[in-house]
């Protein structure tokens, strides 16, 4: 038998303005950045930032719900590893993320369609 470490996942809904502060707090607590993803659901973006701990395997998710036009600050200055995730959100969903440390400017994925998973343009 081996020891099981399976703490309950935490899902915390926060405002866009709190994002940087919470990310910094979690980083100070020694969490590593696990992933970030966006989802476009009913006219709004749902951004999830996941942090986890190497020792306890605790998963802490930050959920930001924002409007299509709302600007979201980049967390790359605090967490350099988030570069690709934020570029991905920007390219595939069209989330308006500002001040990414290395902005790949729609060249992470070499696809012909702009924001294929984001809001559909009214024809």
């Amino acid at each position: 038998m081996s020891e099981v470490k399976n703490p309950e996942n935490i899902l915390e809904e926060i405002e866009v303005s709190d994002l940087l502060f919470r990310a910094m707090e979690l980083k100070k607590k020694g969490y590593r950045f696990s992933q970030a993803h966006a989802a476009y659901i009913e006219g709004k973006y749902e951004l999830s930032y996941s942090f986890s701990d190497y020792e306890t395997y605790q998963l802490h998710n930050l959920r930001v719900v924002c409007d299509v036009d709302q600007k979201v600050p980049s967390i790359t200055e605090i967490i350099p590893a988030a570069v690709f995730y934020e570029n991905e959100m920007k390219e595939l969903f069209g989330v308006k993320i500002e001040l990414i440390s290395t902005d790949l400017d729609n060249r992470l994925y070499r696809i012909n369609v702009e924001k294929p998973l984001g809001p559909k343009e009214e024809a």
Partner: peptide
């Protein structure tokens, strides 16, 4: 020492 198998999915909790 990070190994997600320690999260105990599937039969990993029963295995040493």
């Amino acid at each position: 020492a990070v190994d997600m198998r320690k999260l105990g999915y599937a039969a990993y909790p029963m295995i040493d």
